Amino acid sequence: MSRRKSITIVCSPRQRIGKTLIARTLTEFMLADGRAAIAFDLNPNNTALYGFLPRNTARADIATTRGQMALFDELIAEDDVMKVIDLGDEAFEKFFTLIRQIGLAEEAQRRGIDVIALFIADPDPRSARSYAQTYGELPQIKLVPVHNEFVATMQDYMESFPAPVPGERPVRFPVLSPFLKSVVERPGFSFDDYLERHAGQRTELHEWIERVFVEFRELELRLLLRELKGSITLR
């Protein structure tokens, strides 16, 4: 994620660890900030993101060559739209294999588009191996570990997901209480609309949304700093 044009991939090879919720809040954060944004739902058997944000979500299918070309053409299109990808676990390996094969990250870089991967960490060793592999094989991507408090309360496993820049902290995604979860999963619920309708109030959900949005805004600053450090090093 960046204030420059970006493609942000919310990903993990594991199931049910919050990918769709994070992609959804990230998309709404961008929209609330006045940016044009579209999310791509890459969950072959579950289009939950599309159900929540139908006006700002496109279904994508990489099972066919035609579907792959359509998606990648959209991602690097000459427009000012921020792109968010909700990458389902079933499509995880194939998607990153395709990125390597077609050189999407390099082409995006050439066009001035940041490619960011928000990788949701978890205690399973297979996730740590996938994280390391992604970092090693796709150095052009800005890899960012995410600690979702819903996955585990202990952060010991985060040591297996080191930030590419020493000292840079992971994104911390706060857990929703069961009651709040039931609220945000109602059809048609919008985080941005909720903030507007409850402006000036301090509800528990209001504070949760604000905390998430602050995490995304601070991430933008960290990525900007990472870029500046990289340019100074190159000189």
Rank of each mutant, 00 (worst) to 15 (best):
S2V: 06
R4Y: 11
R4N: 11
R4G: 13
K5I: 14
T8F: 09
I9S: 02
I9H: 02
P13L: 01
Q15N: 11
I22V: 15
R24P: 06
F29M: 12
D33L: 08
R35L: 12
A36L: 11
F40Y: 15
N43D: 14
N43P: 02
N45S: 13
N45C: 04
N45M: 12
A48P: 02
L49E: 11
N56K: 11
N56G: 14
A58F: 10
A58M: 13
R59L: 12
I62N: 03
T64I: 01
T65Q: 08
Q68Y: 04
A70F: 05
L71K: 02
L71N: 03
F72I: 06
F72T: 04
D73S: 11
E74T: 05
E74I: 04
I76K: 08
E78W: 06
E78P: 02
E78N: 10
D79N: 14
D79G: 04
D80H: 10
D80L: 12
V81M: 13
V81W: 12
M82V: 13
I85S: 01
D89C: 08
E90D: 06
E90Q: 04
A91E: 05
F92V: 02
K94Q: 08
F95I: 03
F95A: 03
Q101N: 06
A105L: 09
E107G: 06
A108W: 02
Q109M: 14
R110V: 09
I113Q: 10
I116M: 09
F119P: 06
P123R: 01
P125M: 00
P125L: 02
A128W: 00
R129K: 01
Y131S: 00
A132Y: 01
T134W: 01
Y135W: 07
E137M: 12
E137G: 01
L138H: 09
P139N: 04
Q140A: 13
I141Q: 00
K142W: 05
V146N: 06
N148I: 08
E149S: 11
Q155G: 03
Y157P: 01
S160A: 11
S160C: 02
P164K: 03
V165P: 07
P166H: 12
R169V: 11
R169Q: 13
R169W: 08
V175K: 14
L180N: 15
V184R: 05
E185D: 14
G188K: 09
F189T: 11
D193H: 09
Q201C: 00
Q201R: 13
R202W: 00
R202V: 12
E204V: 15
W208E: 15
R211Y: 01
V212N: 06
F213V: 07
E215Q: 15
F216H: 14
F216G: 13
F216I: 10
L219F: 11
L219D: 09
R222K: 11
L224G: 05
S231Q: 15
L234D: 14
